[in-house]
């Protein structure tokens, strides 16, 4: 008869497994013999996905021992399995199995591992005592799940920041060319510079004009907003995953505040300095646009 014991401890690596046979098996099974049934208050569940030691998984290969299921778990001397919620006959059975003189030594995992495991067994006991079993609310879902990450630290470095402008940032497309609407399509905006001249240039770059977006995220792609400083310049904002907007004024750093230092829930109402004309919302379908 073989007893397969898995040390449930790792996350990325496979857990250590040791197979017991003969007298060793009989010895361990005697220690695992169900003792008194756990009282309701004592049945502290195991945390489903804590990091570190989570107990031992015991599998009986071959004939079953009376009173023990095919597969069950041991944690801090408690046995859990089908029709099994009992104290082990030897509550220190884990220390026996995992100790430096126990069956686990055959895996040659080292003395350090044995010491760590001993500490982990104690840690699991503490976790079970103070584990909060109430429902944890899931954080608020991203409002714009397709929107690019807000990662100013990626843009605000010397090799990228001066060479990429609001159009690069808005479309989330680094070109290092200070991209101009329409340039890649041979349809640059014309003078006088206005919403009417920049909008078709961006459409030529395959941005999708969506004036009715009304600050709502598209189902696919991400939302950008075009504003104009009449006969001066254009500027783009982009809507982030959390529903707020950010922008990169020219060669300056990416920021998530407006000219008054406030967050930007809607570029139509933001302090935009001289960019007084709000033109439109547009959608950037990732991979569809071409800018230069």
């Amino acid at each position: 008869m073989t007893l397969r014991i898995t040390i449930d401890i790792y996350s990325g690596r496979p857990n250590p497994v040791v197979d017991l046979r003969g007298r060793e098996t009989r010895d361990v099974l005697e220690r695992l013999r169900p003792g008194r049934r756990l009282k309701r208050a004592e049945i502290t569940p195991l945390p489903p996905s804590t990091l570190g030691y989570r107990g031992l998984t015991i599998e009986q290969v071959g004939p079953l021992t009376r009173g023990l299921p095919r597969s069950f778990r041991v944690a801090n001397g408690d046995l859990f399995g089908p029709n099994l919620a009992h104290r082990a006959a030897d509550p220190d059975v884990e220390e026996f199995i995992c100790g430096s003189t126990g069956p686990l030594r055959r895996l040659r995992l080292g003395r350090d591992f044995s010491l760590i495991l001993m500490r982990e067994i104690v840690r699991l006991r503490e976790i079970r005592l103070r584990y909060q079993w109430r429902h944890q609310p899931w954080p608020q879902r991203d409002k714009c799940r397709c929107a690019p990450l807000y990662e100013p630290e990626w843009w605000n470095v010397p090799q990228r920041q001066p060479h990429n402008n609001c159009y690069n940032y808005g479309t989330n497309c680094r070109t290092d060319t200070f991209a101009q609407p329409g340039q890649a399509a041979g349809a640059m905006y014309t003078w006088p510079l206005s919403c009417a001249s920049v909008r078709p240039a961006a459409v030529a770059d395959e941005l999708i004009d969506n004036p009715a977006a009304n600050n709502r995220c598209p189902k696919e792609g991400h939302l950008v907003a075009l504003v104009v400083w009449p006969n001066g310049d254009f500027h783009w904002y982009r809507k982030g995953r959390n529903g707020l907007w950010s922008h990169k004024p020219g060669g300056t750093p990416v920021t998530n505040v407006d000219n008054s230092g406030n967050p930007i829930p809607d570029p139509r109402t933001a302090d935009r300095g001289p960019y007084t004309q709000f033109c439109t919302f547009m959608v950037v379908m990732h991979g569809h646009i071409k800018i230069q």
């Binding site: 402008n165 101009q180 001066g232 254009f234 020219g250």
Partner: peptide, 25 residues
């Protein structure tokens, strides 16, 4: 309107204005 992104040779004096976002200053 003519603008430039200072791609001139370094042997020249340059004056510029930091003002635009989309267009080169």
């Amino acid at each position: 309107m003519v603008t430039s992104r200072s791609s001139r040779p370094a042997s020249q004096w340059i004056v510029g204005v930091r003002v635009f976002s989309g267009r080169p200053d």
